[in-house]
Amino acid sequence: MDELRHSPLDTEHRALGAKMTPFGGWDMPLQYPSGTIAEHEACRRDAVVFDVSHLGTVRVVDGFDRLQRALTNDLNKVAPGRAQYTHLLDPDDASVLDDIIVWWHPDGRTFDVMPNASNTARVVDAIGGDDITSTRAVLAVQGPEARARLSTVFAEAAAVKRFHVATLRWNDVECVVAGTGYTGEPGVEIAVPRDAASALWKAIVGSGVTPAGLGARDTLRLEAGLPLHGHELGAGITSLQAGLEWVVAWNKGDFRGRAALVAEKDRGVHRILRGIATDGRRPPRADCAVISNGRTVGVVTSGNFSPILGHGIALAFVEPSVAVGDPIDIDVRGSILAGRVVATPFVK
């Protein structure tokens, strides 16, 4: 195994007493001393900041046509100065190789394509461009009070609206700011040059924003019903199975994996991603069997205790006939958790 990569904010995390964990080839904060649940609640109630420097940034200049051919969504649905969620498919079986946010700079020419940490290389293979991941840090400021708190530090960034993208200066360094995130809460993500990252991090934390780690990031995205590559997306899993057909622009012309995806749509998906709420506090976990009337009908891809709801929640691939409202059981290491199929997000 290669040595772990370190974020430009590594020293800040250690100074705050973070517990670190390997993730996607990076050594990142799992939690700070207050713990995952306190961080989770701070994000739903107030504001938190995550270091998400482990996400890749692949910069493509004048790459509109290349991106249109490589990715499922249609950039013509948005415009310069906007962000778009999209998928990169395997050309042969339409597996989602990565789920990606594209930040389209206001200049109209520059695209910052943000893959998951471990998928950066395959995204560069597919679309070209420069991997500029190591030149910057990315800070995600999220929560109902995120913009209000950030406005005392970086007012222009706080004003960036949902799914907008802006290039802005903070203390004479150029940052790219997008109204995106992965928590289900309002907020922005700021790409800041690595040498200025610590100063911005400290200013944001100093404004009363709670640092939060990957533990809370995972419980928050799960409550928001958002997929995680390697769990709800990945080898053998298509956009259609994951319930993300809205990411697929059928009418924009050809794109990687389109033919395989059309074939799947014609024959119908053999499984679909559903949300399950379980009774009691016990967390369902990935790989637990999903059971209906004594028969296994699927498997959990992500599960945990929902701090906001106070019971277990799970995402699971199940047979397409399993519908919202159906009673369903999850087998957790031999114990049966009773639950029901629910619409996602679990927490609105």
Partner: peptide, 8 residues
């Protein structure tokens, strides 16, 4: 362990 949420 981190934050404990359930005891069997």
């Amino acid at each position: 362990l981190g934050d404990v949420v359930y005891i069997e």
